Amino acid sequence: MELILLPLSWACLASELLELGFVLRDEVPVIRRFTGGGTVIVDHGTIFVTLICNKDDVPGVQPYPRSIMSWSGLLYGQVLRGIGDFQLRENDYVFGDRKFGGNAQSITKNRWIHHTSFLWDYEVKNMAYLKLPARAPEYRSARDHSEFICRVKEYLPRSLFVEKTTKALETHFSLQPVNSETIGAVHEGGFVHTTSLLTKQELKDALASSLESIAHSS
């Protein structure tokens, strides 16, 4: 099953980011997340890596977007050393000029989150749910999704990617496996959720507003 992650700041612009007619027709869930970044289509082929850090956890990294992003580029440079033409370009992870990892952040006074959605694999048909965004990185050069993104699995096995990512993180942090049940128990302790599932009515209203705007402008 696929779903769509929409940045909180852009949720009101759903009609500019999504083909809402297709989304409603296929009943694809749309989640408004609290971090920034772009719109992401998520399915079984997506790998998430999220770093939640106190501001002093990584020496030399300041709680500012550019500082965190630059450090993350070095981190994944370790992971992907000698594999493809890895680069950090305009806040994206790319092989050459093809994106395979998108980033989102949330920063407070004393803590920060750096969240990455890696395109391990994806269904080409799911790209039809996404519009070409008005705000896009310059290196995209108005390419459609099929010409802009690539699959990590074309460069290395999934198990090796996870292993190399873990080893790179161990150079900065002490890692300990935690099962999902433990994480769920922590969340029950009064955590305030700012990520939410958009209702079908909200999506219908966004579509209706978009169609009305088009009618008025024609």
Results as ranks from 00 to 15, higher is better:
L20A: 00
K55P: 10
S106L: 13
S15V: 08
L3Q: 09
Y93R: 05
E123R: 15
A104N: 06
D57Q: 12
P65C: 02
P157I: 10
V94R: 04
N179S: 14
F48M: 11
N91R: 15
A104D: 02
L6A: 14
E181C: 09
V152C: 08
A14S: 15
V58N: 06
M1K: 14
S217Y: 09
S196P: 00
T116D: 05
L88R: 07
K204C: 11
R33K: 15
L207T: 11
G102K: 06
E16H: 08
T116M: 01
P7A: 04
L3W: 10
E90K: 04
S213D: 15
L197K: 09
D57K: 09
G101A: 14
Y129R: 13
D57A: 14
I183Y: 08
T39R: 06
I214W: 15
S209F: 02
F34H: 02
V58H: 05
R135D: 03
Q176S: 14
K131R: 14
D92P: 03
E163F: 10
H114Q: 03
T165F: 03
E16Y: 13
D26Y: 03
R89V: 12
I68F: 05
T194Y: 11
V178H: 02
G82N: 12
I68K: 05
H216L: 13
N110G: 12
P133I: 03
V192P: 08
G102T: 04
A206P: 02
H193Q: 09
I183W: 08
D26H: 10
P65A: 03
T46Q: 11
I52W: 07
Q62N: 04
R25Y: 05
S213P: 06
F48D: 01
K55L: 01
D43W: 04
Q201T: 11
L18T: 10
T195V: 08
L18M: 10
S9I: 00
V49P: 09
R151I: 02
F48N: 14
F173K: 09
K164L: 07
I214L: 15
H115S: 05
D43N: 14
Q105N: 12
L75S: 04
V192T: 13
S174D: 07
P133A: 04
I4K: 14
S106P: 01
S67L: 03
I68L: 06
S213E: 15
D121W: 06
S106H: 15
H187C: 14
F173M: 12
E90Q: 12
S117E: 05
T116H: 01
S196I: 07
S15P: 01
K167Q: 12
R111I: 08
E212M: 03
F148E: 04
V40M: 09
S159A: 10
D26F: 00
S174N: 07
L6V: 09
V30D: 08
Q176Y: 08
T35V: 11
L18Q: 07
A206C: 04
A206T: 13
N110S: 11
W10I: 00
C53I: 09
T39N: 07
S213L: 14
C150T: 13
G189S: 12
I183N: 04
Q78M: 13
K109Q: 04
S180G: 05
P65L: 03
Y122Q: 08
L169I: 08
R32T: 12
C150P: 02
G36N: 02
E170P: 06
